[in-house]
């Protein structure tokens, strides 16, 4: 009985954790950022307050928008939560994790992005179109690097199923692999671009000339904005967890083993805290780059991923 209920329990635990821990991670990053800039932070729970404030505010729509605009926050949120149910964050043994391998997972994020860009063009102003155009530029340039890095990772475990990849890494002896190191570096660059962090995009800017993601959601308000902000936080959380699951899965709970759960939670919290520190260091050290330097940035990510693939064949 326990054995049958275990995966379902894990699955629901994980979805709840994704929903709750994502704002916490963002709160942690903002807090660290405040400290690094010598400001007093609003505390780790501020994102929750922001979200609840948005949920009770009135929703205002632009005159011209159609049902695409109102449906988009729900679709974006739905796709992100589904992705959260698939990535093995707590345990390698999730019933839904076979729903999509890593390629399908990338495509599930792409659904969210597609609708977000459509909603942006729905408003009928220059901002929305600009945001959509730039966002799709960044994502289309990131795609070859994503695939190459997936290719490299799948060479090691000869699988694209995330659970199986995590399982292979944890159950085999630790070997130094240059291919994984390169794939990880490439993944970091891709994750920065996809989650819209500095130096590709600045999540806290509203300057017309530089915004990418913010330009798309400029007209959202109230609960729609809350849903989009929340899914954005989850996206950051999920990319961090994806990196952890595919490159540093040690500590994740194995199949059918509830005793490993507290350990897994603790390890996850620790790794995410480190990831947060890493993000803050990058955002403090680097400045946002020009939009047309992004191709070079992502070209470098592609180069790293390709070097990973090559070094698997050449050196391993």
């Amino acid at each position: 009985m326990i054995n049958e209920a275990y995966p379902v329990f894990m699955e629901s635990l994980q979805v709840i954790m994704v929903l709750v821990a994502a704002p916490l991670l963002v709160g942690w990053i903002r807090m660290l950022k405040c400290w690094s800039q010598g400001r007093t932070s609003a505390g780790i729970f501020q994102p929750f307050r922001d979200l609840s404030k948005l949920f009770i505010k009135e929703t205002v729509l632009a005159e011209n928008v159609s049902w695409i605009f109102t449906a988009t926050p729900y679709i974006v949120f739905g796709a992100t939560v589904l992705a959260g149910a698939i990535i093995p964050i707590l345990s390698v043994d999730l019933p839904l994790s076979a729903t999509a391998d890593i390629i399908a997972l990338v495509a599930i994020f792409a659904i969210a992005r597609f609708f977000m860009a459509l909603a942006a063009t729905d408003i009928g102003t220059a901002f929305g179109g600009m945001g959509a155009s730039r966002e799709m530029m960044v994502s289309s340039l990131a795609e070859p690097a994503v695939l190459m890095s997936v290719f490299t990772v799948s060479l090691v475990s000869s699988s694209t199923s995330l659970s199986h990849m995590a399982h292979t890494l944890t159950s085999s002896p630790i070997v130094l692999r240059p291919s994984l190191a390169f794939a990880f570096l490439a993944f970091v660059l891709i994750a920065i671009a996809e989650t819209g962090r500095i130096p590709v995009d600045n999540p806290s800017t509203h300057l017309e000339l530089t915004m990418i993601h913010e330009a798309m959601i400029l007209e959202y308000s109230g609960r729609h904005l809350a849903l989009i902000e929340w899914s954005n936080m989850m996206k950051l959380f999920l990319f961090a967890s994806l990196g952890i699951a595919s490159f540093f899965p040690w500590g994740i709970a194995g199949a059918d083993n509830i005793k490993m759960l507290p350990m897994a939670l603790l390890a996850l919290a620790l790794k995410l805290a480190l990831a947060g520190i890493f993000v803050v260091v990058i955002e403090t050290v680097l400045a946002k780059m020009r939009v047309f330097r992004v191709p070079e940035f992502l070209g470098f990510a592609f180069l790293l991923a390709t070097l990973g693939m090559l070094s698997h064949f050449i050196l391993e």
Partner: peptide
Amino acid sequence: QINSILAAFILLTAF
């Protein structure tokens, strides 16, 4: 292993 990692990074510095 260490040597191949170093080789990989030498390649990276060349790029």
